[in-house]
Design a protein around this nucleic acid. Structure first.
Length: 424
RNA sequence: GUGACUUUGGUGUAGUGGCAGCACGCGGCACUGUGAAUGCCGCCGCGAGGGUUCGAUUCCCCAAGUCACCCCA
């Protein structure tokens, strides 16, 4: 039979690595709780229209990267390419945002799907930790989200971070900026890259972000976003910066920072990390004050971020930072002879009933082989039972670290191991 | 989506148009009572696929991975 491989751009996470995911996810949940965000879980697939209306028709993600298919009932379904749209949909649908002045702070951990050309740090299924805060239009809320995100990185041990911030302003400021940019670039359209010539009508802000030297040349002297900001938007952005400073979070204002979703207004930000290569963004976010209304909810401001977990893990690896490996407290049962083996089996059940992680060989190896297995599985303790111990109603308890053996009465083994393994 | 490079046991590698070798690993035995020691024996592979050829691991296609662009997490 021929083998079947995992689909392109997907990976399996095996036990040798899954512990890292457990730690990172645990840190995400802990830091979210500290900032008082509650967990939300939404479907992995949604009606395609949600992303067309939410993420935006002009974005590359909606245009050419979505996994869209018709289900057996003839509905157009899309595997979510990002987390925010589904969260907003769920908040509206649940009625949480219906009350005047409603507020909610939620976080999520889950998969996103984009039809991309895979590379290191770029997969077709990737995972994000994200958070969204609804109902507060003040810049303080933007900064709380940024602080949550940066705190998450700090607790994971990521180094060499850079936070870039920018503001596109409210809807009117954004349109004013867009018009100014189109007016500036249209006379130069001939010297733009092919991609950017298309963007000029579709998504002109993206041209600023282009790395093509022709585009960068053409953008020289372009009107900065700040000039188009309304007074309110300018004050908003200034307070974001003031609050970041007062929280001692280093950042850089990047007037060319543009992000891939159409729904952003006012503040937007991106965080890059060293150790990643070309795909060096590990997370980004922004404010989206029109999105809830656009998706059929009562007009409610919102702000949030998404952070890639594969890239976080890659960055840690690239930086030589290792996550704190949880202490092993596995107990391995070793027996000599058939009667002792039966006794070990009974003890195994007792230990497990007492909540102790334990295992034993089931394939009839000799004592040496059983010790080898215990060693390979990194058992913290071994319990050895043979004829002698059986007769005396005892067992030998061996500490793997010190290799010291002590004889323990059969009736006291469970309690003794409970104390030993919980102490670790 | 564009271009370049890469792909050999579980891992790391050598090599060739006709016999695929090494190291680590894994299993057994020496050794039914102590783990990473020693010795012996053994196990596992040319990217699932297609083509050229008398014959392909080797050449071509395809696939997958990596890098840059692109995009973004």
């Amino acid at each position: 039979m021929s083998k079947i491989s995992a689909p392109r751009g997907t990976v399996d996470t095996l036990p040798a690595d899954s512990w890292k995911w457990q730690i990172v996810e645990r840190i995400a949940r802990e830091v979210s709780a500290i900032y008082h965000f509650g967990e939300i879980r939404t479907p992995v697939f949604e009606h395609t229209e949600l992303f067309h209306r939410g993420v935006g028709e002009a974005s590359d993600i909606v245009n050419k990267e979505m996994y869209t298919f018709e289900d057996r009932g003839g509905r157009s379904i899309t595997l979510r390419p990002e987390g925010t749209a589904g969260v907003v949909r769920a908040m509206i649908e649940s009625g949480i945002l219906n009350d005047q002045g409603a507020r909610a702070k939620v976080f999520y951990i889950g998969s996103n799907f984009r039809y991309e050309r895979p590379a290191s740090g770029r997969l077709r299924q990737h995972h994000q930790f994200g958070a969204e805060a609804f109902g507060v239009a003040e810049p303080d809320q933007d900064v709380e989200c940024i602080l949550l995100q940066m705190d998450f990185y700090r607790r994971c041990g990521v180094k060499d971070l850079e936070l870039q911030v920018n503001s596109l302003g409210d809807r009117e400021s954004k349109e004013r900026y867009r018009d100014a940019l189109v007016a500036f670039l249209t006379p130069k359209s001939a010297q733009l890259s092919e991609d950017s010539q298309r963007r000029l009508s579709q998504n002109p802000l993206r041209i600023l972000d282009s790395k093509d030297p022709r585009d960068q040349e053409a953008c020289q002297g372009a009107p900065p976003a700040g000039e188009s900001l309304s007074d309110k938007s300018r004050l908003h952005f200034e307070r974001v910066q003031a609050l970041l400073k007062s929280a001692s979070v280093p950042f850089r204002v990047n007037p060319n920072l543009v992000r891939g979703f159409d729904y952003y207004t006012e503040t937007l930000w991106e965080v890059t990390a060293g150790g990643l290569g070309a795909q060096n963004a590990i997370g980004g976010g922004g404010r989206y004050d029109n999105l809830v209304e656009q998706l059929g909810g009562r007009a409610t401001p919102g702000v949030g971020f998404g952070s890639g977990l594969e890239r976080l893990l890659l960055a840690l690896e690239g930086q030589g930072v290792s996550l704190p490996q949880p202490p092993g407290n596995l107990v391995w049962l070793i027996s000599h002879g058939d009667a002792a083996r039966d006794e070990s089996w009974k003890l195994l059940l007792e230990l497990r009933a007492a909540g102790i992680s334990c295992d034993m060989d089931a394939s009839g190896r000799g004592v040496k082989g059983q010790f080898k297995l215990a060693d390979r599985e990194k058992a913290a303790y071994c319990i050895v039972i043979g004829e002698d111990e059986l007769q005396k109603r005892e067992a030998v308890l061996k500490d793997s670290a010190t290799r010291q053996e002590t004889r323990v009465a059969r009736d006291e083994i469970v309690a003794k191991l409970q104390a030993a393994t919980s102490a670790k």
